[in-house]
Design a protein around this nucleic acid. Structure first.
Lengths: 128, 128
DNA sequence: GTGATTGCAAATCTTTTGCACTAAA
DNA sequence: TTTAGTGCAAAAGATTTGCAATCAC
């Protein structure tokens, strides 16, 4: 089940999260949510924005994607120490990562199932 | 099944990988493989080394852990964009990560099982 | 000896932050 | 107005690299 939110829904979402509808956020939201699900890096989105004549700073893209993630609109996918992706599909799912070409591929639907997993470690449950 | 390699076995392993037995590598190997399985960061191991009167540079710890990983003696565990752990248990297994206290916990034995997973994406299988 | 390894400092890369200015509500 | 958001440049962290000195073999 894909939970991609179309552009309009994303805007609602941001308003509900108390984020102002600035020019930059609107533009980035459109880039992210106008089409199908995407996996973007901060850098790639920044370049894409500028290519689309959106005047926005790299720092703002960082801030924005972090805020969107905090609001639950995006999902952060940490690949390695020097590359984080943001996934417009915020539902719980897994990925393949192509190390050679450095891109993510969704593992669709129920194709990956965790049959059994342990409880959180006891030290966490008993402390505090 | 734990595949911790005792110190002596680790030394063999390094020799087989063509890595010279330098003072720094020997010391780091002992710290890593003298006891039970460990999850260490570069920084933590560097501090530990210095606390044990091992004269070694941070850069060398970086290089060494990367070489050990390449040799298959360690496993790299990427937690987030600013923290990589190295696991002395190089076998295939999973972890819990405590975000609050920032440490890894092994998921022992067969407690986590992936019931079903998809084939690698077709574009990878057909290309090249 | 000879080439691998190390130390050191500088460089790189990603991400965050401080602050004055701008814009949304 | 009032406060949040942005740009810019600087800072912060993690990691890598260049190069001369050192060490393993």
């Amino acid at each position: 089940m894909t939970v991609r939110r179309p552009y309009a829904a994303a805007l609602e979402w941001l308003r509900a999260a108390g984020l102002r509808s600035t020019r930059q956020r609107l533009a980035l939201t459109r880039l992210l949510f106008a089409g199908t699900d995407r996996h973007v890096t901060v850098n790639a989105l920044h370049k894409e924005a500028r290519a689309n004549n959106v005047r926005v700073t790299l720092a703002t893209v960082y801030n924005t994607l972090n805020q969107f993630t905090e609001a639950g609109l995006l999902r952060e996918v940490v690949v390695d120490a020097s590359c984080t992706y943001f996934d417009t599909n915020a539902s719980h799912h897994h990925h393949f990562f192509c190390e050679e070409d450095r891109y993510l591929v969704d593992i669709p639907g129920e194709e990956l199932k965790v049959a059994k997993h342990p409880h959180p470690p006891p030290e966490r449950r008993s402390r505090r």
